[in-house]
Design a protein around this nucleic acid. Structure first.
Length: 431
RNA sequence: GUGGGCGUAGUGUAGUGGUUAACACGUCAGGUUGUGGCCCUGAAGAUCGAGGGUUCGAGUCCCUCCGUCCACCCCA
């Protein structure tokens, strides 16, 4: 709290407190389960990589590389960077470990923290977590559709509705150059009408004008040349096949629809052909829940043999914000089976030993705080979301019994013999 | 990197120049002899983000910094 003396978490990073963990775990578990349902296997890459991996992979000119990387020199003088995204590291691992020798495509997923030096705001953090899937080694649009379907299934499993899917094809490297020039020429003609932000963008990233938030530019974008009109024959065939595959998903996902959006572009250099985004219907600007696409050039850029790939990244924090907005997922912590209430030193020792034996039987057991009054311990038991209190005091020890009191199910307090098996059976007869 | 809003106990708030900064929730303790939830009582907990200034006097006004939120940029 205080400026000096007390530490607080650095800007833009957050603690995930015990009260949030249930939801986090549910989301993570859903991600893992969904990925596995499609035959994806987990991969973990290091939190930091050589800086060059991102400079080359993500692109030297991108904002991520230009101004958002957590880079540092280690004690050996090596420039390292906290990973800002997951795709380049996965591709590096693919190359490094000769994964082209595995059956193709290689399907992997990860749930991992990412780091970007950004100004924090709603849904944007300096450390955030992404659930990502990558399918490497298959050029077919079938795998593009699969990647999008994983997103659909994940969203559906989380109970989210009103999530719109936008897709576009930005073509291949060759045709894209011609398209970018075409686009620049188009906007150049209206250069004097453009707001300053967009005039600046014109030279360095003409594609970016398409998703500008300036009303003037938006109006112009509607009639701008479309990347879809500049696709090579191959890219066009790929695109049309993808659309047919997506239409085919509508039987399995009755609520699914997608929108072709020729203003959709992506900020990372390695994308080609298919790009897509999932976003919820509500207001707010940091709302993109998913972003992904095809990145056929990437592995070549990183020094591997030309190998196609496609994947997505999805922000866990944003998903959680959306779940909370929609109240789409109700989760509850599992209760503790029993709290040991113990008064007196002998009783405390006995309760401690009993708790251990009960845990051997598979129960979750918590000790109420030692040395406190029975009332305080009972209050603690009540607040700890426990099913039963197992009460052991000097009186019980003398009689060789324990008092078992149901806290949530109603019913009377019982006296049972002071023995782990008997106590466990009295709590859970089916055990 | 740019712009705007906001910073009072763990949390949410009240207090808009004048005595020991208030309330709720939470925490802790108690309310007959060893038994939770509801209720009641009490206690602890805030140098009012930090530093400077104006004033007889500042949580309240001004400046700077920091933090935070929102938007731009960009992205998940």
């Amino acid at each position: 709290m205080a400026e000096q003396g007390n530490f607080r978490a650095p800007r833009g990073v957050a603690d995930i407190l015990p009260g949030d963990q249930t939801l986090w775990n549910a989301v993570r578990a859903t991600a893992v389960q969904t990925a596995r349902q499609f035959g994806y296997q987990q991969i973990d890459t290091p939190i930091f990589e050589h800086t060059g991996l991102f400079r080359r992979g993500v692109g030297d000119e991108t904002d991520i590389v230009q101004k958002e990387m957590y880079s540092f020199d280690d004690l050996g003088g090596e420039s390292l960077t906290l990973r800002p995204e997951g795709t380049a590291p996965v591709c590096r691992a693919y190359i490094e470990h000769g994964m082209h020798n595995l059956p193709q495509p290689v399907r992997v997923y990860y749930v991992a923290p990412m780091f970007r030096y950004d100004r924090p705001q709603a849904g944007r953090y300096r450390q955030h977590h992404q659930f990502g899937c990558e399918a490497i080694g298959d050029p077919s649009p079938v795998i593009d559709a699969e990647i999008i379907e994983i997103g659909l299934r994940y969203i559906t499993a989380l109970g989210l509705s009103d999530v719109s899917v936008r897709i576009n094809s930005i073509g291949d490297a060759g045709s894209r150059g011609g398209y970018a020039d075409e686009l620049r020429n188009y906007f150049d003609r209206y250069s004097s009408d453009l707001p300053k932000v967009d005039r600046d963008r014109l030279e360095r990233a003409p594609l970016r004008l398409l998703d500008s938030k300036e009303p003037v530019t938006q109006k112009l974008s509607a009639d701008a040349p479309k990347s879809l009109d500049y696709l090579s024959d191959e890219a066009r065939a790929h695109w049309e096949s993808l659309l047919a595959l997506l239409d085919g998903l509508k039987t399995a996902y009755p609520n699914f629809s997608y929108r072709i959006d020729h203003t959709l572009v992506r900020g990372l250099d390695y994308y080609n052909r298919t790009v897509f985004e999932f976003e919820p219907a509500n207001e707010g600007s940091q709302t993109s829940l998913f972003g992904g696409g095809r990145y056929d050039p990437l592995i070549g850029i990183l020094g591997g043999d030309q190998t196609p790939g496609v994947g997505f990244g999805s922000g866990i924090e944003r998903i959680i914000l959306e779940i909370q907005r929609q109240k789409s997922l109700k989760v509850a912590d599992p209760p503790v089976n029993a709290v040991m209430v113990h008064v007196g030193e002998d009783a405390t020792h006995r309760a401690s030993a009993l708790a251990a034996e009960l845990r051997n039987l598979g129960l979750s057991v918590t000790m109420a705080p030692a040395g406190k009054s029975m009332r305080a311990q009972m209050r603690y038991a009540n607040r700890s979301n426990a099913n039963y209190a197992v009460i052991v005091g000097n009186r019980e020890i003398e009689q060789g019994i324990a008092a078992v009191k149901p806290l949530q199910f109603g019913g009377d307090q019982l006296s049972v013999s002071l023995d782990a098996d008997t106590i466990a059976k009295s709590l859970y007869p089916d055990l």
